[in-house]
């Protein structure tokens, strides 16, 4: 089974957002970068399916040359090769993202049985790149998948709705977008990292279409002033918490 996994480099945000002076971007000068959790699960799922069914796992990402860092990290997990679609570094809107991914797939020329993406990116969260790519490729798409098995060319996909699960069945080739919780992604091993250095990362330049969702500024929503009440870490503090439980009506 030939599997493609589309991944996105995003800043590793800690507890607060620091914006650039013009508020158009997150100030990433002091931040590391990572993938969104959904995509880590997508790569893990792809490697597991490849190990069970044979074939290979190809990674694809859009971005500047720095994006190779995330591709190498996931090659160390066990993906076989990677495609880096080089852009000018501007932020594409979801339509432009899907179009650029399509261009890179066509330029690569390989045929894929399964195309995996995250349900939505950690940063922009447009909830549509996988669906747009599926329509462009003429493939069916199942989104938000938290359980995935493949048998005889048919994928069984589970997604969580409240406390229940909906099951979808789709014949491959197909696009499937997945969510965190699909699996527990492994950490790259040292031998994995060494092997990853020698794996192929092919590059392909793409031109991004002008965005039709034109980003103005970013705003960090003001947190309501909470006036946190600090309690003692002793029996008085514990008793005060029990008073809180009583006020909320939990001990009636």
């Amino acid at each position: 089974m030939e599997i493609l996994v589309c991944i996105k480099r995003v800043p590793l945000v800690g507890s607060t957002f620091i914006l650039t002076d013009d508020a158009s971007e997150i100030d990433t000068r002091r931040l590391g970068f990572t993938l969104s959790p959904h995509e880590e699960c997508a790569v893990e799922a792809a490697v597991q399916l490849r190990d069970a069914h044979g074939g290979s796992v190809t990674l694809l990402s859009l971005g500047t040359a720095e994006t190779e860092e995330q591709l190498r990290e996931q090659l160390a997990i066990g993906a076989d090769r990677a495609i880096l679609a080089i852009t000018d570094g501007s932020e594409p809107d979801p339509q432009a993202t899907a179009a650029a991914l399509l261009e890179a797939i066509r330029a690569d020329g390989a045929q894929f049985d399964l195309v995996l993406l995250g349900s939505e990116s950690a940063d922009v969260a447009g909830y549509q790149t996988g669906i747009r790519l599926a329509h462009a490729l003429g493939l069916p798409v199942v989104t938000g998948v938290k359980g995935l098995t493949v048998d005889a060319g048919v994928a069984r996909c589970e997604r969580a709705v409240g406390s229940e699960r909906e099951v979808y069945s789709v014949a491959l080739p197909a696009v499937i977008t997945v969510k965190d919780g699909l699996n527990i992604p492994r950490y790259p091993s040292v031998p994995g990292r060494i092997k990853a250095r020698k794996k192929e990362v092919s590059t392909h330049e793409v031109t991004l279409a002008a965005p039709r969702i034109v980003k103005g500024r970013l705003v960090v929503p003001a947190a309501a002033a909470k006036g946190t009440k600090v309690l003692d870490a002793n029996e008085q503090g514990a008793a005060a918490l029990v008073d809180v439980f009583r006020e909320i009506g939990l001990l009636a």
């Binding site: 940063d123 034109v214 970013l218 960090v220």
Partner: peptide
């Protein structure tokens, strides 16, 4: 964006 931790003001063409 970011699960609502950050808001984006945009125009849509």
């Amino acid at each position: 964006r970011w699960g609502g931790n950050l808001l984006e003001e945009s125009t849509v063409i």
